[in-house]
Each structure stands twice: as C-alpha cells, then as structure tokens.
C-alpha cells in the first residue's frame, strides 16, 4: 500500500471520530443547559475547552453564549475541529484513498458529507438542533457500519482502526483533562447536585451515561467514573480499550509486514502501564498530571506511526 494511502485512511477515520466527538459535546452541553439553565454559561465555556478550540473561538466571539458555541462547533469553516470541517476533511481523505475503500464505504462517506453539509448549510436553530445532531450521528454510524461489514481485514483496515482509536483516546483524555477537578475525590462532598450533573455530563460526552449505570448498578462516585473512562476495557471509549485496539492493529501490521517499528514499543508501553494502574495509583500520581502526560504520549505515538509507515516523505 502507498504510504500516502495509509496516511489518508488514518486521517479519514480520525476526522470521522472527531466529528462524532464534537457532536456529542454539543449534545451534552445542550442537555446541561436545558436541565440546569443557570449553570449553563460556564458549561459552554468548558465545552469549547474540551473541543480544544478556546483561542480560535475567542477570535470570532466575545462570550460563550449557547448559539455562538453551537454554531462554532458545528459549522465554523476556519476551525479544523468543527463538525463540518471534520466531515469535509474525512471525505477529502476518502476521495484520496478511494481505491483502498469498498464502494460501500466510499458511498457512505460521500452521503455522510452530503447530508451533513446540507444539514449545516445554515445556522442551526434551537428547534432543529436535535434533528441535526441525529443526522450527524446516523451518518457517521453508516460509515462505520460499511467499514465493518465490507472491508477486508488487512492493512487498509488496520490503518483505519488505528486512526480511529488514536483520535478516540485523545478525545476521552481531553474530557478528563478539562473536567478532572470534578473527579477529584476531595473536591466536593459526594452526592452533591453539582457533582451529579457534572458527572452525568462527562458520561454523556462519551455516550456512556446508561452503560455506566449498568456496570456500576446505581453507585456513582468520582473514582468509579475515572476507572470507567480510563481503565475499564469493556467501555469502548476508555483509554485502556483504545490502547488494546491500537496494539491489536499494530501487531497485525507487524505480523503482516514482518517488520517491527518504534511505534510498536511506544504503544505496548502505554498499554501495559494502563493495565498495571488502578484509580488509587492514578489519584496518588495526580489525575491531571497523568492525563496531560497521556495526551502527549498519544500524540507522539501518532507521529511515530506516521513516520514508521511513511505516510509522508
């Protein structure tokens, strides 16, 4: 496979993953502003932080008003992380690697782009917002479905998956990075309303508010949420889950190509560390420090993969 193609697949799926992430942040923010209107102002600022676009946002806006934030996160052309930019970038990458995709995956991506661009052509009003978010969720699910249902399990699939999970790990880590303070055991008396709303918001940002309840049957506390998002390998957006997948796909590549690279060692180290930790040791080390370091290492892994598999010259 061409190095460029591997890079195109990697980024196509990173952007798709990011578009879903940003859409979920908007959804969680919306939910919070509906249920807790007076706390909403701060909340929208933290949504912008979680999307990692504060500076870019403030260049174009003065306040964190819901309409401004929603429009920026969904439609801003100058921001690479808006849903519209992400879907467009995913589709541009898909066009570039079209020969590596099945017709089903290409068409699903193209349709996703057409539907999302149409839905985001104009500013989205409050009343249409749930429908628009639904379109985004459904369309990207169709791309994922086509990928699972039609692609050969070969190097093409591996690069698509690695891109997905590097991005997903980054996204989950960013939520933790911005919200770490509500997960600190000492921050709030357990069971306060503030915590419950914030915790619910974190779980909604990773589409896990229901699955968390199933796993932890009613008992909500900060350590359990941190465990769920970082260490629980059943939870498809946890850091440990993502690194399990990254390691699987990297080792398939290693077997397939008969070559081991620096990226393999980095991914294995991060994964074995995740398996050796528990919430107590993470909190002892400092949740925020741990997450900040994780984000840096995860980025470095992405760059290493790019070099090892010759995405660019």
């Amino acid at each position: 496979m061409l190095g460029k193609t591997a890079g195109g697949l990697f980024w196509m799926f990173r952007y798709l993953e990011r578009s879903e992430y940003v859409a979920r942040l908007v959804e969680a923010g919306l939910r919070l502003s509906l249920t807790r209107p007076h706390a909403a102002g701060d909340e929208w600022a933290s949504v912008v932080d979680t999307a990692g676009v504060r500076a870019a946002y403030l260049e174009k806006n003065e306040a964190f008003d819901p309409a401004g934030v929603v429009d920026f996160l969904l439609r801003e052309k100058d921001s690479a992380s808006s849903v519209l930019s992400c879907i467009t970038a995913a589709r541009t990458n898909a066009r570039m690697v079209r020969t590596a995709l099945t017709r089903e995956v290409w068409e699903a991506t193209n349709e996703c782009w057409m539907a999302v661009s149409a839905a985001l052509q104009r500013k989205v009003g409050e009343r249409e917002l749930p429908d628009v978010l639904n379109v985004i969720r459904q369309q990207s699910a169709q791309v994922r479905g086509a990928l699972h249902g039609t692609m050969l399990r070969n190097d093409i699939y591996d690069f698509a998956r690695i891109g997905t999970f590097i991005e997903r790990a980054d996204n989950t880590a960013r939520i933790l990075d911005v919200k770490y303070y509500v997960l600190l055991p000492s921050a709030m008396p357990v069971g306060s309303t503030f915590d419950n709303v914030q915790w619910d918001n974190i779980l909604r940002s990773v589409s896990a508010h229901r699955s968390f309840r199933h796993v932890h049957s009613g008992e909500t506390n900060a350590a359990a949420i941190a465990d769920f998002l970082i260490l629980d390998r059943r939870m498809p957006r946890s850091l440990a889950f993502c690194y399990g997948k990254i390691n699987d796909n990297l080792s398939y590549l290693q077997n397939d190509y008969g070559e081991r690279h620096a990226c393999h060692a980095i991914a294995e180290d991060t994964f074995s560390e995740l398996r050796s930790l528990n919430t107590t040791s993470i909190f002892e080390r400092g949740l925020h420090e741990y997450i900040a370091e994780f984000i840096t290492r995860n980025n470095a892994l992405g760059l290493r993969i790019e070099a090892d598999y010759r995405f660019i010259e």
């Binding site: 496979m1 061409l2 190095g3 460029k4 190097d155 690069f159 190509y257 598999y309 010759r310 010259e313």
Partner: peptide, 16 residues
C-alpha cells in the same frame, strides 16, 4: 510526490 528515482527505476513510497 509518491514517486522518486531509485537505482535507475521509478519507485513508489509504500508502507513497506
């Protein structure tokens, strides 16, 4: 930019 001259041949940059 996927191609270059190597040993008198045109070669494409692959993942391997």
């Amino acid at each position: 930019h996927d191609l270059r001259v190597i040993d008198g041949r045109i070669a494409m940059r692959t993942t391997r």
